[in-house]
């Protein structure tokens, strides 16, 4: 598998670190991790995409689902560290309007 996901919890905030390519075959793993967290109603979920080289529309759709679930209990769901090509996908589909997106971990934490 060319995908690794780890989570770390710091002060009630959960970081989901994703590394590799998020595509049709690997995005269900991302989904499982995120859904485990929303089931527990994690108040803050911060998705670290610094090490994601590629994300297809299944990856984007998966994040949309995470956001939607998190919104249901008024949790916070944000993305940070998008590489240029991943950021482009969000901009072209105008999803940058829906997500909270930050350049790095620090600015994601601040807000």
């Amino acid at each position: 598998m060319n995908l690794e996901i780890t989570t770390e919890e710091i002060d009630q905030k959960v970081f989901v670190n994703i590394k590799g390519e998020v595509d049709l075959y690997s995005s269900p793993e991302v989904r499982k991790k995120i859904f485990d967290l929303v089931k527990k109603k994690a108040p803050v979920i911060l998705i670290n995409l610094e090490k994601v080289k590629y994300m297809d529309s299944s990856g984007v759709a998966t994040l949309i689902e995470g956001l939607q679930q998190c919104n249901k209990y008024n949790g916070r769901f944000a993305l940070y560290g998008l590489q240029d090509n991943v950021r482009e996908v969000f901009e072209l589909t105008r999803l940058d309007k829906i997500f909270e997106i930050y350049s790095d971990r620090e600015s994601a934490l601040k807000n």
Binding site: P28, R31, S57, S58, A61, E65
Partner: peptide, 23 residues
């Protein structure tokens, strides 16, 4: 094609379908 060839759940496929139709 997504239902036949990928492990994606229906809820994700629905969003993907809408994204592609929007495009």
């Amino acid at each position: 094609p997504l239902r036949e060839h990928t492990p994606q759940p229906d809820s994700t496929i629905k969003i993907m379908t809408r994204m592609k139709l929007g495009l």
